[in-house]
Design a protein around this nucleic acid. Structure first.
Length: 898
RNA sequence: GGGAGCAUAGCUCAGUUGGUUUAGAGCGUCUGCCCUACAAGCAGAGGGUCGGGGGUUCGACUCCCUCUGCUCCCACCA
């Protein structure tokens, strides 16, 4: 078959991907082979492909294709995640651009828009994945909100509720005022921020009835203004919350604030009188040692409020503006109030000073411009103690292996300090909580039933005393949706319908899955919770290995982000360099667990490798077999050597795969192909221009090429398919992806080591040639000594373009030592004796120094006494070899000097 | 505040239980080459004493301690 002079990925990739799909090569059904299962970390349904995905999916595809060729029934299940907060936010924004407000829509209307958006944007990312060459079983494509997955979620919720693991609780939760929903603790990201610490005056209210005794104040008058009124000073970063203050707190052991004991103080501007309470929680050293207590808006304050039985005043609306409860600044945004209140306090002389202060502020993971507000809310929670107990052992005992292992510690720490999981979200896009509220009298506590559907709910409700005659329309379903991760955690199970149809054929065959490839950033969100769900519902781990990839950064080490504009578009890259090149580029720089510093040059390297394979193929493809030709000695040797080296490399590659060292495996194959196969093997066996090749060498070469292509295939599927198909007429429906992955045969290291002598000799001669400025076209005379392996001579002669004979050089020559044998290149007329003497002398000096160090070791009584035999033998060998080399160099020196 | 990790050629990284001729790779750099597979190429070369200090050992890049610098995770100090 004729091939283009250059590899053109765009004309090849689409063709083969279509072919693979048409032939259903990616599709898996249970059979007698062992299963190899991977579930994709489902990308956001409306997301687009970024470099992180490319890394992640490429690694998965390499693993899957490798397993498939190894004879496993490989099944890689793709799908997308509904990503409730992120997607709902996008829909809300889109509606806003259309002039529609979410709150003006009914739930049904909103969801109609959301599904429209999903149909429009959903699945783009899956199409992009196909461009990468991923061998997912597309017939199994799932969505976390499709029927099977939704039903699974409902069943699990009902089940966990009935087990008493899900409860409703009034808790201080993290509130996202923009999305207007609660977040789990894991969804809050704390960022360092330069903020201000405001010092405010709280006047003492009860000096008339309860005179201030300023004990502990020595000398100068503090806490007294010009009118003689006493006041305390409170430091706060959030002056806008003073309307919610219901106490001031001091540490009982704080001498400087003793005088405030038992007093009441006045909240500035608000003029509410609040008690001074005492609690050891207060840090004496911080600020003034006086803490304002706002139970409704701070987690710690809430705890204080509970302990001291304080009133709770919620001054915020859900959207972060001030509520009527605040009394002041009603309707203003909390951030605006912070600025304004400082001004007003100043005016009212209630403001002491302001300091710069570095603190951490929590932001919504999905809404990174919005500061999270602690808020008191009734929400649904999942008790986590039980899940931590079942999820810890499999990882600690090694049933699940983390790569790299350092994440085991992270995992354990989290599980050992786990908090209950807030699973409800005030969103519409998601799985609606299957709980129905019953009508109750004013002031009575809420009552509800949890059930798979409304009919069940009604039936359950009617069993409650007093509700026997309840009608369906009296039930009110909970408005909230579940946290996205409450569906993701079932993914490895729900993909095989293991929740709705426990024990079905597929779940039995594919579960547990083998390897999970994901980022360490979702170890808590997803990995840990999948382990919990797996143990809870199947009594088994969801996967055997977790491969944590690093974060893709630019070459300066910065995270890729839209703002910086340093994130290349993978599709553009694929169009420019080819999918195989992009895949290789990502893999090259991705040792497990390390962050990836991405640079286009790596993709260029991948592209170059494609070019190399392409051209090597063109060379071999163009050979004509000459049936009369006999195999030359050099070709016979090359075949023998490369055959051994190939087996040895396959062995190495196997080892790398077993250790998840994907980039090392690729690098080993890359070097084998480029350096050994192209630069040495092909150069030796390649026939002279216009001549044919002997059949033996030709067949061996094709076999090698075929194995090399199969070795490369998991990494670079397109070009390998193209070349494999071009090698010969293939049967209809055949593909390289279903061929066996090469298996290492026995190999003889001695053959490989011996050949290295030839390689070094050739390099040595080329070096001499280059340093003397001699053209490679001019044949040279080379003398070797007796010890040189004779059978290597034809190879050296061909590659170095030299005539070789045995003997001592008598005329002017440049010599060097390979191992312990001497090689002399005769160069009458080209030699500068002085120069050579200098070079040889420096070599001699080096060897003598080396000898001294070896002898130093050997004469060390301790070394000889303690070191193992083998190590001592090695040192002895070093010594004798070195002595031989020194003798050889000295002989060369003598020859030069005559 | 707690925990984890990293520091090896210009860059990115290997270096597997301490001993395979005084440290390896890829890329980049330098030199010479358009030779009929490939200039997205070929051939050759240079480059580090393994962050600093101390210790254990016959022997340490490899184990221990310490210092310095970076990264990440967790945590309710206003």
């Amino acid at each position: 078959m004729e091939l283009d002079a250059k590899y053109n990925p765009s004309s090849v990739e689409g063709k083969w991907y279509k072919y693979w799909l048409e032939k259903h090569f990616f599709h898996s059904t249970p059979d007698n082979r062992p299963a190899y299962t991977v579930v994709i970390p489902p990308p956001n349904v409306t997301g687009i492909l970024h470099m992180g995905h490319v890394l992640n999916e490429t690694i998965q595809d390499v693993l899957v294709r490798h397993a498939r060729m190894k004879g496993f029934n490989a099944c890689w299940v793709p799908g997308t995640d509904h990503a409730s907060i992120a997607t709902e936010a996008k829909v809300v924004n889109r509606l806003a651009s259309m002039g529609i407000k979410k709150r003006d829509l009914t739930r049904e209307e909103f969801l109609k828009y959301a599904w429209e958006w999903k149909e429009e944007h959903g699945g783009i990312i899956l199409e992009q994945l196909k461009r990468l060459g991923t061998s997912c079983d597309w017939d199994r494509t799932a969505f976390t909100m499709d029927d099977v997955r939704s039903e699974s979620v409902m069943r699990v919720f009902v089940d966990l509720y009935e087990k008493g693991l899900i409860y409703r609780g009034l808790r201080m939760v993290n509130w996202d005022p923009k999305a207007q929903t609660v977040l789990s603790t894991e969804e809050v990201i704390y960022r360092d921020e330069k903020s201000k610490l405001y010092y405010l005056r709280y006047y003492v209210a009860d000096t008339d009835t309860n005179p201030v005794k300023p004990l502990g104040i020595e000398g100068e008058v503090l806490h007294q203004d010009a009118d003689g009124r006493w006041y305390a000073v409170v430091a706060t970063t959030r002056p806008e919350t003073i309307m919610g203050d219901t106490a001031m707190c001091i540490n009982p052991k704080d001498p400087k604030n003793q005088w405030l004991r038992g007093h009441k103080v006045i909240v500035p501007l608000v003029n509410r009188v609040i008690p001074v309470i005492e609690d050891r929680y207060v840090d004496i050293e911080f600020g003034t040692g006086c803490l304002k207590v706002t139970p409704a808006h701070d987690v710690n304050d809430y705890a204080l409020g509970k302990a001291h039985n304080l009133q709770t005043i919620d001054i915020f609306n859900p959207d972060g503006t001030l509520s009527p409860e605040a009394g002041l600044y009603v309707g203003m945004d909390r951030m605006d109030v912070r600025r304004q209140i400082a001004v007003d306090l100043e005016k009212a002389s209630l403001f002491e000073k302001v300091e710069d202060y570095d603190n951490k502020v929590g932001y919504s993971e999905r809404n990174q411009d919005t500061a999270v507000e602690p808020r008191l809310c009734r929400q649904w929670f999942l008790k986590m103690k039980h899940f931590a107990d079942i999820a810890l052992p499999p990882v600690l005992e090694g049933k699940i292996k983390f790569h790299p292992t350092k994440y085991v510690t992270t995992y354990r720490n989290w599980l050992e300090n786990i908090q209950d999981w807030c699973i409800s979200r005030q969103l519409w896009w998601g799985h609606r909580i299957p709980a129905w509220f019953l009508p109750v009298a004013e002031g009575e506590e809420e009552r509800f039933v949890v059930a798979l559907n409304e009919a069940d709910a009604l039936a359950k409700a009617r069993q409650i005393k007093g509700y026997e005659n309840l009608t369906a329309d009296a039930l009110t379903r909970d408005e909230d949706a579940l946290d996205t991760w409450f569906s993701s955690w079932l993914w490895p199970i729900s993909l095989f319908d293991g929740i709705n149809n426990p024990g079905n054929k597929e779940i039995k065959y594919y579960y547990p899955t083998n390897d999970l490839v994901t980022g360490p950033d979702i170890i808590f969100f997803w990995v840990a919770r999948m382990i919990m769900a797996g143990e809870e519902y199947l009594n088994d781990v969801p996967f055997g290995n977790v491969y944590f990839t690093g974060i893709v950064r630019d070459k300066l080490g910065r995270k890729m982000s839209k703002q910086l504009g340093n994130s290349p578009d993978p599709i553009t890259l694929i169009e420019k360099y080819g999918a195989d090149a992009v895949r290789m580029g990502m893999l090259l720089c991705s040792s497990a667990g390390n962050d990836i510093l991405y640079d286009d040059s790596q993709v260029e390297q991948g592209r170059n490798f494609c070019g190399k394979m392409w051209n090597a193929f063109r060379l071999v493809n163009g050979w004509k077999v000459d049936t009369d030709a006999r195999q030359s000695e050099s070709s016979a040797l090359a075949v023998k050597w490369f055959s051994n080296l190939l087996d040895k490399t396959i062995d190495t590659v196997d080892d790398h795969f077993n250790k998840f060292r994907i980039s090392d495996a690729l690098m080993a194959i890359y070097k084998l192909f480029w350096d050994e196969f192209c630069s040495w093997y092909l150069e030796i066996v390649k026939p002279a221009y216009g001549q044919g090749i002997d059949i033996e060498t030709f067949n061996a070469t094709k076999t090698f090429f075929d194995k090399l292509l199969r070795l490369v295939h998991p990494f670079m599927p397109f070009i390998t398919e193209e070349l494999w198909q071009s090698m010969e007429q293939r049967a209809e429906g055949s593909t390289i992806m279903l061929q066996d992955y090469p298996v290492a045969g026995a190999f003889d290291n001695a053959v490989i080591d011996d050949f290295a002598i030839a390689q070094e000799t050739v390099a040595g001669i080329r070096n001499v040639r280059q340093s003397k400025n001699l053209s490679p076209k001019d044949s040279l005379k080379v003398l070797i000594d007796k010890a040189f392996p004779k059978y290597l001579v034809p190879v050296v002669a061909k590659l170095a373009n030299v005539e070789i004979s045995e003997g001592e050089s008598r005329s002017a020559a440049v010599s060097f030592v390979i191992g312990t044998t001497k090689v002399s290149v005769e160069l009458a007329g080209h030699i500068n004796a002085e120069e050579e003497i200098v070079k040889l002398n420096s070599e001699l000096e080096y060897q003598k120094k080396f000898l001294a160090s070896v002898r130093g070791k050997l004469s060390n009584a301790g070394f000889v006494a303690h070191a193992p035999e083998a190590v001592i033998a090695v040192e002895r060998k070093k010594e004798s070899d070195c002595l031989e080399r020194i003798a050889t160099i000295e002989a060369s020196l003598n020859a030069l000097k005559y």
